[in-house]
Design a protein around this nucleic acid. Structure first.
Lengths: 349, 349
DNA sequence: GTGAAAGCGCTAACAT
DNA sequence: ATGTTAGCGCTTTCAC
């Protein structure tokens, strides 16, 4: 295979000059640079990443750790991160924690420790203290996306604000009896997203002078199936039925829409539904939602990592400065509260 | 950071012995091996992958190239591949071709050439001749999954047989007027999957003595939305309406189910629908389908790559030997043809 | 069975 | 601005 020596010979310069010319580090006369570039492309020379890494201590590769892959949010974050990384000339090595305990442990105790990555991006990870420690032990920049990791700068949308916005959208349409489908209680302890989303929902209600009714909340995991089940419960309750539902994710919201249909309710005539995500499927289901731009979250996280890599060799990452944007997308699943329901409700009040 | 010298010192042996003891290559006395292992774990030593690669020429890393990420099939294949790779001690570096032309080119002309990977796995890729060439130019084992690549050993289910099986399931339930939603014609030239699936559908019909009716076929891309549209066309046609639909993917099939509902048809009473995939969402939509086990495809592909890596250093990969399994999964979206329709149909014949 | 030493292909002082 | 050279951390002959 053609190496730096071949290029040096063909260009009539030393290997050091080739290295400098091609990497852009150090001073090279424009004419020489030209010669070298030409020789390199003529030979089809591409620098050997392994050798370069060994010499520089930098791999030009980042590790991306995900809890599993088969989920819209993760793949979207990865797409965004990947795009940015490519622009910086970095590779992306993927570590998936979806295996058994043994496999998971081996990612932290083995794979990540072989010095193959300059930095680590942790996507929506719930890590044990030991795992966070071993990540820090890498001495590499580390940032999180989509979930809070103790002691790690993390990109995440403001889940309270996002759900508040979604709820306010429904309030502005005249809804007063608004249900919420959110994360299950068991996960809430370590992973605050569901709690935050519920908090945003309750905050919006209170701001509007409405006391949240615990009977209008149903827990669910973040799947269509679970959203469907929870919506059924919510809509079938013997007390007053909500005229609208805020789901903590689009997949849950879609489940709720289907549940409504199956119960003979028409969306949005009889029930408004809003989700959070702007999932790929949201347009098809005509779902109103709050776009959380996961690809952008991935891109931003990479930018932060790159900044950290330029500044130092340690694992101190500059703080996340700008808040992440989110946007209300109004489609056809939300509409003005039915007159009858509004009348009934105001009669109650 | 602790290196091989530290371990050697602590164990009281040479670095060569440490290397042999830890890698398992070469002969080391059991007692020595024990000493070394102990010293290594005491120091938390993990071999530096970069240095090891440079010395051996093997990276213990494979490149996985996908056209994009946000699709159930790709992520499933990757999950399977990743799991197996981990078991072999390999990392997975992800290359995504979903960017613009420039970015795509740079994957082939730059990223893949830096000798960071021992082998390449190409998932459902439609590659130009140049791209295939540059992959071969790596001189590394290369296998494909899920789509045919000229001159590359490729894992793929037997698309004809799979769709034939799905169609036969409907025939066995008494259906005679069976529609098909498949890939759009434009992609068929390079990517044979849609054509194969249509062929399997037609083959099953002919075997049952039914001449395929072109009016019962509608093209679609592999999304819910597109399946929905195609099903609407199929079901709304002024001539005879099919009593069943074979969709070339589960997402299209789900689109078809929703289209049927929207038209006031009940599944499976008025219409049977079967898909292909056994997608994550299939259970929720109670969809009958043919499971194509994409994770298994990923695992198998990795096994083949590993075999190739053990045998030689060239890029000759042993042929794919065993056929990939697929399984009919009968859920609630398929049922015996309605008596009336059957009567009408037999009256026609 | 173990150690000494020569590289793997590149980069980064240091010299010039 | 360019060349010389000593490593980066490991593996692997080749001796013993």
């Amino acid at each position: 295979m053609t190496g730096i020596d071949d290029v040096a010979k063909l260009a009539g310069v030393s290997t050091a000059t080739v290295s400098r010319a091609l990497s852009g580090r150090g001073h090279v006369a424009p004419a020489t640079r030209e010669k070298v570039a030409h020789a390199a492309s003529q030979l089809g020379y591409v620098v050997n990443a392994e050798a370069s890494s060994l010499a520089t201590g930098r791999t030009r590769n980042v590790g991306v750790v995900v809890p599993f892959l088969n989920r819209w949010f993760y793949t979207s974050v990865i797409e965004g991160a990947q795009r940015r990384l490519m622009q910086y000339g970095y590779d992306l090595t993927l570590y998936n924690l979806s295996g058994n305990e043994h496999e998971r442990a081996s990612v932290f105790e083995h794979f990540l420790l072989r010095k193959r990555v300059d930095a680590v991006l942790a996507v929506s990870l719930e890590l044990t203290a030991d795992e966070v420690d071993s990540l820090h032990a890498l001495g590499r920049p580390l940032v999180g996306v989509g979930g809070p990791i103790p002691g790690v700068p993390t990109f995440s949308i403001d889940d309270v604000a996002v759900t508040k916005l979604a709820t306010e959208h429904l309030l502005s349409l005249g809804h007063r009896v608004i249900g919420h489908i959110g994360g299950d209680v068991e996960r809430e302890l370590s992973f605050h997203l569901p709690t935050h989303r519920r908090a945003g929902y309750e905050l919006a209600l209170r701001d509007a002078g409405i006391e949240p009714d615990p009977e209008l909340y149903f827990p669910a995991v973040f799947t269509m199936e679970s959203g469907y089940q929870a919506a059924k419960q919510l809509l079938g309750g013997p007390r007053h039925r909500p005229t609208a539902i805020v789901a903590a994710s689009d997949e849950m919201a879609i489940g709720a829409i289907i549940a409504a249909r199956d119960m003979g309710l028409e969306v949005p005539r009889d029930l408004s539904v809003i989700g959070i995500d702007n999932h790929d499927l949201a347009p098809f289901f005509n779902l109103s939602t709050v776009d959380q731009h996961p690809e952008l979250q991935g891109e931003r996280a990479v930018e932060l990592l790159m900044k950290a890599l330029q500044q130092s060799n340690g694992d101190d990452v500059p703080a996340v400065d700008q808040p992440l944007p989110f946007d209300l997308i109004v489609r056809g699943s939300t509409a003005r509260v039915p007159l009858t329901a509004a009348a009934v409700d105001s009669a109650h009040g």
